[in-house]
Computed example of a mutant assay.
Amino acid sequence: MQRQTPEQLRADVARMSAPTDGSAPASQSSTFGAAFADLRKGAGQHELWLQLGWQDIKQRYRRSTLGPLWITVATGVMALALGLLYSMLFQLPLREFLPHVTVGLIIWNFISGCIKDGANVFIENEGLIKQLPSALSVHVYRLVWRQMIFLAHNLVIWVALVLVFRINLGWEVILAIPALVLLAVNGVWVTMLFGIIATRFRDVAPLLEALVQLMFYITPIVWTTHTLKEQGGDVAERAKLAEINPLYHYLEIIRAPMIGQDIAGYHWWIVLGCTVAGLLITTVVMRQWRFRVSYWV
């Protein structure tokens, strides 16, 4: 594909962000209707955020020999290192533990990317927000799309593990598809929510980065709840604390079917409940402060 010049990219952005129905941009009023209209308009401008997302990938790996393959290489090396280390520490079979760590790390990269990058999504797009008549949600969809591209690259590692370890996958693996869709929906509200808050309060972004690092260690990625439960006693009781962490349930609805494990139905209900609650909170935040973002950036 021919690389676009900055002038050509700006021209394409302006063309795709312009209203297609000949009407003026919707009034930025503090109503729920305006908030939903922003989400619908942003979804309708899919050509814009799809192209911008691809442009982000190409710009990030510009003049690189491997290009986007570095995404897969970096994740694969990290998963292998963590899998080997913690399998020896916990005395777990590498055949079972490495897929657990790898898929968990792949999903975690998406979640942490939406949180940390989402906090700066509007700040980094200050120029586009102030100069182009696009919906605010375009920048959110752009970031989530970019994170989905990263996730798709990393899924190559999962395919390799399935082939190497001959993981027995049943029909349950199909459940990973709606789970990924649900993860993307959550990525939208997480990015929008933290993006608006962090644009107003600039200290939120570094705080979120520290919290994400902490959540990595208390989420069963490099450890398993089954290992703790097998030890019995107080250790088994402490394993139940993982149930309080909502990110654990997000991981389970995707990881379990992808590594051939059974999944309890309550994980789905918790994720659906968190999704509905998150969307409601984000809608309220959009209604109240969405139209002020262009003044805060």
Rank of each mutant, 00 (worst) to 15 (best):
L94W: 08
N120D: 13
T75C: 11
V156R: 05
V164D: 10
I115W: 14
L136T: 03
W108Y: 10
G187C: 08
R63G: 00
V138A: 02
A135I: 08
L155E: 03
G170C: 05
G187E: 04
G76M: 05
F150M: 01
L151C: 00
E124A: 13
I106E: 13
V138I: 14
V140C: 06
A184R: 13
C114D: 06
I174P: 02
G83D: 01
L128N: 09
L98D: 06
A176V: 04
I115K: 04
I106K: 02
L151F: 11
T65M: 10
A74F: 10
V73Q: 01
I107N: 13
T65S: 00
L151P: 00
S64D: 07
L85V: 15
W108V: 05
T75K: 02
D117T: 14
P68L: 04
F97Q: 05
Q131F: 12
V103E: 03
D117W: 13
I174N: 01
P178E: 12
I106F: 08
A79V: 07
T72A: 10
L89D: 08
A160E: 09
L98R: 07
V173R: 05
L80G: 00
M148D: 00
V77I: 15
L85C: 11
V185S: 08
L183F: 09
I107H: 07
G127Q: 12
A79E: 01
S137T: 14
A152N: 01
W108K: 04
V144Q: 06
S112P: 02
P99G: 09
W145A: 11
S112H: 03
L84Y: 11
I107P: 09
Q147R: 12
I174D: 09
V159W: 10
L183E: 15
Y141K: 04
F90S: 06
L163K: 14
V188Y: 13
P93D: 07
E96R: 04
E124T: 09
L169W: 07
L182K: 07
F90N: 08
Q91H: 15
N154W: 02
R142C: 09
I123R: 12
V121S: 03
K116I: 15
N109C: 07
L98A: 11
L132S: 10
G76I: 06
F165C: 12
F150R: 00
L128Q: 10
L69V: 12
L183K: 03
V162H: 14
L182W: 09
Q59G: 08
S112F: 01
Q147H: 08
L82Y: 14
L163W: 14
V144C: 04
L143K: 10
L84G: 05
W158R: 04
